[in-house]
């Protein structure tokens, strides 16, 4: 337990020490999205009856911040440790692969939730947001952050360079979040793209998270939760197997 808590604490300390980059920057980015898209699209779109577009946009932006920051935490920390070589301090110690996994993922969840909460708090100055079912929102935020934290871990384990992690982020994480319905309801899409969106696990996270605020969603929240949970289990098992094998960590 001590080994896990120390490694987790180290990961948290790392991101708190650079909180301008790790918390301040994503809050600013999200605000820019809100201002720009809100300004451009306010009044032209009404996704849910009686919900203004900027209000509709906020939960999606919050979830996007949660997901991207959870991914960024584990991936950037581990790839930096691998490149600078200081990962050796953990590898030399009697830390098991399960403790290693849990520490990185839990720290990623915390980073995702902290950034998400900050983004939410700041946007509340601009919009009045209903909160229909907070526990649903929390459940989706937790599972989504865990899933992306785990993916970040995988990206860093298999990569040898920072560029490779960035490629994973740019070609996988960003497209999947942007196409998950952060900025729109998938019901506004042509049928082909609607079907395709249903194959994107990020869609269920964002849609379910939004249900927590509006009590309305594109897909049944319980089914979304089950799908997200199943994805998380699958990715976690694969990651644990990868870590157990020592792939690109212990040669």
């Amino acid at each position: 337990m001590r080994r896990f808590s120390t490694l987790c604490y180290k990961e948290l300390l790392r991101f708190f020490k650079v909180s301008i980059q790790t918390v301040g920057a994503p809050v600013l980015t999200t605000l820019l999205y809100l201002v720009i898209f809100g300004h451009a699209l306010e009044g032209r779109l009404e996704v849910y009856r009686g919900v203004r577009y900027t209000v509709f946009l906020v939960p999606g932006l919050v979830m996007m911040a949660v997901l991207q920051n959870a991914f960024a935490n584990s991936s950037s920390s581990l790839i930096q440790s691998k490149i600078t070589g200081n990962i050796v301090f953990v590898l030399l110690a009697p830390v098991s692969y399960v403790e290693f996994f849990a520490a990185y993922v839990v720290a990623s969840i915390v980073r995702g939730l902290v950034v998400g909460l900050c983004v939410l708090a700041v946007t509340l100055f601009f919009v009045d947001l209903p909160l229909h079912a907070p526990l649903w929102a929390l459940a989706f935020a937790l599972l989504g952050a865990a899933l992306l934290g785990t993916l970040g871990l995988v990206a860093a384990v298999v990569s040898d360079k920072i560029d490779q992690v960035a490629a994973f982020q740019n070609f996988v994480v960003v497209p999947l979040t942007f196409l998950s319905g952060v900025f729109y309801s998938i019901h506004t899409l042509p049928p082909f793209w609607q079907r395709l969106s249903h194959a994107n696990p990020f869609f269920y996270m964002v849609d379910g998270f939004r249900y927590g605020f509006f009590g309305a969603s594109d897909f049944a929240p319980a089914a979304s939760l089950a799908i997200v949970f199943a994805s998380l289990l699958a990715v976690c098992s694969a990651t644990l197997w990868l870590l157990k094998s020592g792939y690109k960590l212990r040669y």
């Binding site: 001590r2 080994r3 300390l13 301090f89 110690a93």
Partner: peptide, 28 residues
């Protein structure tokens, strides 16, 4: 083990580094 390469974690102070290392060995 004292590794050959001069590796370090630039986020931490000397004392933090040593406390963290103790924790990795389960020492409170």
């Amino acid at each position: 083990v004292v590794p050959q390469e001069l590796v370090f974690d630039p986020f931490f102070t000397v004392r933090e580094t040593l406390r963290l290392q103790s924790g990795y060995y389960g020492l409170a």
